[in-house]
Design a protein around this nucleic acid. Structure first.
Length: 112
DNA sequence: ACCATGACGTTTC
DNA sequence: CGAAACGCCATGG
């Protein structure tokens, strides 16, 4: 693919893998944690490449700031992302995470 | 080098 | 309160 995108990309993957079970986070939170708060889009871009990674990345645990499954269309099925979340006790309705604020996992605060 | 796109976020109307 | 516009940054054509 590219050259040394591993640095930024791998950072995103690392944080994504650190997301606890039944918890979700937002792209902006990860971006800010990485010091690229203005590059929330890049986080999503990295997730797109997550499939290239050998290690599995729980991208389904990463949603936008509204808790909406904006990236569900990028998964295999149309409801695979929701299935995975529901499998982790995360309720999803209308492509939106229920009690998002309650299950929101902030790396800046929780992980620190 | 310029234009177009995107798994986002914030501000404005 | 809801929708639209703008801003940011990286990748691709």
């Amino acid at each position: 693919m590219k050259k040394e995108e591993n640095n930024f990309f791998e950072r995103v993957y690392e944080v994504a893998r650190l997301i606890p079970y039944g918890r979700v986070t937002s792209y902006g939170a990860i971006a800010k944690y990485l010091g690229a708060a203005r590059s929330a889009r890049m986080v999503g871009w990295a997730m797109n490449a997550s499939g290239s990674q050998e290690e599995e990345v729980p991208a389904h645990r990463v949603v936008n700031r509204k808790g909406m499954l904006s990236g569900k269309h990028h998964f295999e099925g149309t409801n695979l992302m929701q299935q995975l979340l529901e499998n982790e006790n995360v309720k999803v309705e209308d492509n939106q995470v229920v009690d998002f604020e309650n299950i929101f996992w902030d790396p800046l605060k929780e992980l620190n």
